[in-house]
């Protein structure tokens, strides 16, 4: 094929590239976890992508050995493997879409109550500093020992 200049590419074996791509992905997962900034569900989604990879490899082996075909030509195996990616991506999407995540000290919990997102100053004082409760709401933070962040040091 001369279209798109893919002819020269076709001579390359893609398998080592796919295998090699696992290394930076593992580094990505490691640093994403170490950052402690990712929404937990999204991080689990990115990790679940490895399950998709494992299932795809297993399905490709079955397609080759039982049917003598590449995975993409054995539709049930192909679709059955790809659905793991659909689930993984859904977790990533959901994780980054949710506004009530508990990843950053309750700033989002305030936001989800319909208030302005906490500015960094308010966030630093913790979730209890800006409670606005409706009648009958239990306090979001139990009474502490009387010490306050507003106390002079």
């Amino acid at each position: 094929m001369t279209v798109l200049g893919l002819g020269a590419l076709a001579a390359v074996d893609p398998s080592p590239l796919f295998v090699l791509s696992l290394l930076p992905y593992l580094a990505f997962l490691r640093w994403a976890a170490a950052s402690k900034r990712f929404p937990p569900l999204a991080l689990r989604g990115f990790q679940f992508t490895l399950v998709f990879v494992a299932v795809t490899i297993a399905a490709a082996v079955v397609a080759e050995q039982r049917f003598g075909l590449q995975l993409a030509d054995v539709d049930p195996l192909h679709g059955g493997a790809e659905v793991f990616l659909t689930v993984a991506n859904l977790m990533v999407l959901w994780g980054f879409s949710r506004t009530d995540s508990r990843t950053d000290n309750g700033a989002d919990n305030l936001a989800v109550r319909g208030q302005q997102p906490a500015d960094p100053e308010a966030q630093a004082t913790g979730p209890g500093s800006e409670q606005v409760l409706s009648a009958g709401d239990p306090p979001a933070v139990p009474p502490q020992d009387g010490a306050s962040v507003f106390d002079p040091p």
Binding site: M1, G5, L6, L17, S21, P24
Partner: peptide
């Protein structure tokens, strides 16, 4: 169209390097 598969493998590798750098 095997070249597309190789292109897919290459962009996967590139993408994963980019993800690692972003993290």
């Amino acid at each position: 169209l095997q070249g597309l598969v190789v292109f897919q493998a290459g962009t996967t590798l590139l993408g994963n390097v980019a993800l690692a750098a972003a993290a």
